[in-house]
Deep mutational scan, measured.
Amino acid sequence: MQYKLVINGKTLKGETTTKAVDAETAEKAFKQYANDNGVDGVWTYDDATKTFTVTE
């Protein structure tokens, strides 16, 4: 399945996608991506759209 990440950071904004077997695996990949880019915020997930959002 394909999952999307929407980033609403202080210095980084945008979107990225990943393919993963489940939401938990996608979340780990997205959190690593956010961490690598210095984004630390509040996470939400919408199962209907398979979209994670992180807001600083």
Rank of each mutant, 00 (worst) to 15 (best):
V42N: 08
L12G: 08
T51D: 01
E15H: 10
G9I: 12
A34M: 07
F52K: 00
D47M: 09
G41E: 01
G41W: 07
D40R: 14
G41I: 01
W43F: 04
E24Q: 13
T16I: 15
Y33I: 06
T18K: 06
K10L: 14
T53W: 08
A34T: 08
V21M: 13
N8F: 13
G14S: 13
K13I: 10
Q2A: 08
Y3Q: 01
V39K: 02
E27F: 15
Q2Y: 14
T17Q: 09
D22V: 03
V21Q: 11
D40V: 14
K19V: 15
G14N: 08
F30W: 02
Y3I: 02
T53F: 09
F52A: 00
T18W: 06
G14C: 14
V54I: 11
T49W: 04
T25E: 13
Y33Q: 03
W43H: 00
L12M: 12
K28G: 06
T55V: 09
Q2L: 15
T11Y: 14
Y45R: 02
G38C: 08
V21W: 13
T25K: 06
L12V: 12
D22N: 11
V42P: 04
T49N: 08
K19C: 14
A23V: 12
A34I: 07
N35H: 15
T49P: 02
T49G: 04
Q32H: 07
Y45T: 00
K28I: 11
V42C: 09
W43A: 00
K13A: 09
A34Q: 02
Q2E: 13
E56R: 03
I7D: 01
Y33W: 15
K50M: 10
G38H: 08
I7R: 01
G9L: 15
A48T: 12
Y33E: 03
L5V: 03
L12K: 09
T53Q: 05
Y3F: 12
G38K: 08
T25R: 07
K4C: 07
N35T: 13
T53M: 08
E56A: 07
N35Q: 14
D47A: 14
A20S: 06
K10V: 13
D40T: 14
D36Y: 08
K28D: 05
T44P: 00
D46N: 09
A23T: 10
M1F: 14
T25N: 08
A26R: 00
A48F: 11
K4R: 13
V39N: 03
T49A: 07
T44Y: 07
Q32R: 11
N37Q: 13
K19R: 14
K31G: 03
D36S: 10
T49F: 05
T25S: 13
A48V: 11
W43Y: 02
A26V: 03
V39M: 06
T11P: 04
A29P: 02
V39F: 09
N37D: 03
D46C: 08
L5C: 07
W43N: 00
E27D: 04
K4F: 14
D40P: 04
E56I: 09
F30Y: 02
T18Q: 07
T16R: 14
K13E: 05
F30Q: 00
K13Q: 11
E15A: 08
I7F: 07
A48W: 07
D46Q: 05
D47V: 10
A29V: 15
M1Q: 14
A29C: 10
D36I: 10
N35C: 12
K19I: 15
Y45F: 07
G14T: 15
A48R: 10
